[in-house]
Computed example of a mutant assay.
Amino acid sequence: MDIRTVANPAAPYLARVFGIRDVVLTVLTASADEQDRRRLVQGLVVIDVCDVVSALISRRAGHLSEAGGRAATLAAVAALMPELGWLAANRDR
């Protein structure tokens, strides 16, 4: 994603911190009952929409290169699609 670690030495730390949160949220979602799963997936949608917005803002502000900003945006959108698909497929439950 071209997050410049020279200018941002905390970038690897932040990647690990957020990475473990994704793992924990995935495990919690997979093991939840239907009602809790729906709420967790809705929360994940909010998180990923915020990630899309953050990537766009960071690209505009120059914190990410053009290519890095596109990659970050696409990654956030890619994470969002299965969540929206699950909600659509399970809307009647």
Rank of each mutant, 00 (worst) to 15 (best):
A72V: 05
L74A: 08
V45H: 00
A75M: 09
V6T: 15
R93Y: 05
D48F: 09
M1T: 14
V45L: 01
P9N: 05
R4L: 14
A71N: 14
D2E: 14
V52M: 10
D33N: 10
T26M: 04
R93C: 08
G68Q: 05
E34F: 09
M1H: 12
M1P: 11
C50L: 10
A11S: 05
P12C: 13
L84R: 01
T73Q: 09
R70H: 10
A79Y: 08
Q42G: 04
A15W: 09
V24T: 02
D36V: 07
A11N: 02
V45T: 02
V49R: 14
A67F: 14
T26D: 04
V53H: 05
S31R: 15
D22C: 12
D2V: 05
W86S: 04
L28Y: 01
L87A: 04
V6Q: 13
V17C: 07
D2Y: 13
D33E: 09
V49S: 09
L80V: 01
V23L: 08
A7W: 07
L87Q: 02
L87I: 00
A7C: 03
R16C: 08
V77Y: 02
D48N: 14
H63G: 13
R39W: 12
L74W: 07
I57N: 11
A30E: 07
P82A: 07
V41H: 01
D2C: 09
A89R: 15
M1K: 10
T73G: 08
V6W: 15
L80A: 03
V23S: 03
Q42H: 10
G68R: 06
N8H: 12
A10R: 12
M1D: 13
R37D: 00
S31T: 15
R93G: 13
T73N: 04
A7L: 14
G62Y: 06
T5D: 11
A32F: 00
S54F: 14
G62H: 07
A78G: 13
L44H: 00
L44E: 05
A89K: 06
I47A: 07
G68K: 08
I3S: 05
G85E: 06
G43M: 00
Q42T: 07
L56Q: 11
V27S: 06
L28E: 11
V41Y: 00
V46G: 13
Q35W: 07
E34P: 12
T5I: 15
L28P: 06
A15I: 12
P82C: 04
V17W: 13
R39I: 01
H63R: 15
M1Q: 13
A88H: 11
R38M: 10
M81Q: 13
N8M: 13
A7R: 09
R21C: 12
D22V: 07
Q42N: 15
A61C: 08
S58N: 11
A76Y: 02
T73R: 14
G69P: 10
R21W: 10
R39P: 03
A30K: 05
V46T: 13
Y13V: 11
A55N: 05
T26G: 07
P82G: 04
H63F: 10
V53F: 09
A75P: 02
G19P: 01
A75N: 07
G43Q: 02
G85Q: 08
S54P: 06
R93W: 06
A15P: 01
D33L: 03
R37H: 01
A76M: 06
I47P: 00
E83Y: 00
A79R: 11
V17F: 12
P9A: 08
A71S: 15
L84M: 09
R21E: 12
